[in-house]
Amino acid sequence: MKLAQTSALVFCLLGAPGVALAADAKQDVEKAYAAWDAAFNKHDAKAIGASYVATAKLMPPTHQVASGPAEIEKFFDGIFANGVTGHKLEMIDAGGDDKVVFGTAKWSATGKDKEGKPSPIGGLAMHVFERQADGSLKLRLQTFN
């Protein structure tokens, strides 16, 4: 019985850091999503571009891959020019470690229909972040439909 209790204690102690790391990843992704949504909803393409690492890739449904913050900024300038507003990321799941963190989300926004009237749009998104030296997250890869 004593061996079983010791094994359970060791398991709990070893398992605890992973649980804390997963909780931190979810909190960190929520924070990153909130900052990204805020920049989008201000139509601040420069702030959006700054949320990506230098080697980042954005893979939108258009199949035109944007590489690096400058191309990603240009992509979002085009989105803003088309009148897209009210962006919201709702986390489905997140996880990772001290270097790489992932997030999956439902996204929604308001676009324009063929007559130029507001129309809801949305889909799913996947994000891969790199943890920075200060603990913050920057996007390495983003794809959405």
Rank of each mutant, 00 (worst) to 15 (best):
K74E: 12
A39K: 04
K26G: 14
I121F: 03
M91K: 14
D98N: 14
K42E: 13
A70M: 01
A20K: 06
A23W: 12
K138P: 07
A20R: 08
V101I: 15
A50P: 09
D37N: 13
I79R: 00
A23K: 10
Y52C: 09
K112W: 02
F75Q: 02
A81K: 15
D44A: 04
T62E: 11
K112T: 10
V10T: 02
K31F: 04
G15L: 06
A105I: 05
V19S: 03
T6V: 15
E90T: 15
G95M: 09
G116T: 09
M126S: 13
V53N: 08
G123S: 02
T6I: 15
A4P: 00
L21E: 14
H87M: 13
A22Q: 11
Q64W: 03
G86W: 00
H63C: 06
K117E: 03
R140I: 09
I48R: 01
G83H: 12
K99R: 11
W107T: 00
T85V: 14
F76K: 00
S108P: 00
L141N: 07
A25G: 03
Y52A: 06
C12W: 09
F102R: 09
C12I: 12
A22W: 11
P60I: 04
F129N: 05
A81C: 05
I72K: 07
A133K: 15
A4H: 09
G135I: 12
G49Q: 07
K138R: 15
M59F: 13
N41R: 03
V128W: 04
G83F: 11
A47G: 11
P60D: 05
T55C: 03
V101Y: 07
E73A: 12
G49P: 13
S136H: 03
H43G: 10
A22S: 11
K57T: 03
A20D: 01
G18S: 10
L58K: 05
P17F: 04
I72Q: 07
V101F: 04
K114P: 00
P17M: 06
H63M: 13
M59Y: 12
A34H: 11
M59A: 15
C12G: 13
P120I: 01
G18D: 06
K2R: 13
V53W: 01
V128T: 10
M59L: 15
L124Y: 07
